[in-house]
Design a protein around this nucleic acid. Structure first.
Lengths: 182, 182
DNA sequence: CATGCAGTTCAAAACGCCTTGAACTATATG
DNA sequence: CATATAGTTCAAGGCGTTTTGAACTGCATG
């Protein structure tokens, strides 16, 4: 949304000229992954690698997606850490190349399982603690404690729903991406 | 987190002195609702009204939660629009008062149903469009089209999972808050 | 061991969202 | 209808997150 000023001039040798539909798909994946709570550009990098089905260099990624050098480095680091992008060394080549390894939903699920559950658990604990304090205080009416209990139920419901969400997406996509190179 | 400088001096008559557990619970609800993609303070305002089980004035809300006048106005407008807070006029009182009407999850579900589904649907459409364009282009390998198809499946799975998520939370909490005044 | 390029780091800039506060409008009351 | 108080609006400011770009590190090669 920014660097479209210096379009496909002559200086740079664009390998694959961003065929309209490709960037459309790449951006769409960026949006899905943003919906899942990650960075848009993490999704775009993965989508590029997945679609091309080739190991690209950081410089190529940088050029295709119009990102900065540092940005690509950090994005790839994240994707590697999550195991959705693999770093490979091509024989006669000095630089690393990167390729998409598995699907993004798998990663999203894993990370959400770690992050979000801890977050919700924390909230539940806070509500439980608040209720305990209220119960200990004799001046607090029974009605109020009841309300606190109901709010706890909301947090619990959220947690349960999140659980089902993750499980569903697993069943749904599971085995769909299991193998796609080779 | 800011205006604790002018504590409970003498000028203002604090009705209920923020009993520790109360603000703990209020903040917890703020966090849950933020998790659901809303503003933290929307959740806090609702939680205050719900816990107090009394119709409060904007000025009271402003003081209790340490918000600005304008902020309270906008937060209440949103909550009213979503039907979780009701505006009531007390007889001998010049100003409006506000009270919690139903639970927050209901609202979250409704809003998400409108907003997020549209968002995901848009993404799916983009991916479908990209695939169509790719299919029309004879130079595009079959393999690549297949990959586009798989990415579409991810968006579809997301939509389906979102659906289950909402349904689950409905069954889970539904009828728990149905009526609580009177 | 000097050179050059790939990759990393991180402070600063850009960006987006939320909140503030002052000006303004609406409403009730004497 | 004048005044006071409640409520709304919105530009400006604040704040957290993401991105940039320049300095730096590491590595391979001659």
């Amino acid at each position: 949304m920014k660097g479209y000023l210096w379009g496909p001039s002559a200086a740079t040798s664009v390998r694959t000229p961003q065929s309209g539909w490709e960037s459309m798909a790449i951006d769409a994946v960026g949006n899905v992954i943003e919906f899942w709570g990650f960075k848009r550009n993490q999704g775009r990098v993965w989508a590029l690698l997945y679609l091309r089905d080739t190991a690209l260099t950081a410089a190529e990624i940088e050029k295709e997606l119009d990102l900065s050098k540092g940005g690509v480095s950090m994005l790839i680091r994240d994707l590697e850490r999550w195991g959705v992008v693999l770093r490979v060394r091509t024989p006669g080549d000095a630089s690393w190349r990167y390729r998409a390894e598995t699907d993004l939903l798998q990663m999203a699920r894993r990370v959400i399982e770690e992050r979000e559950f801890a977050f919700i658990a924390r909230i539940r604990a806070d509500l439980a603690e608040a209720r305990k304090l209220a119960e200990a205080d004799a001046t607090v009416e029974r009605e109020k404690v009841e309300r606190l209990r109901k709010m706890e139920a909301v947090a619990e419901a959220t947690e349960r729903a999140l659980n089902v969400f993750l499980k569903t997406s697993r069943l749904d996509v599971g085995g769909m991406f299991e193998r796609f190179r080779a």
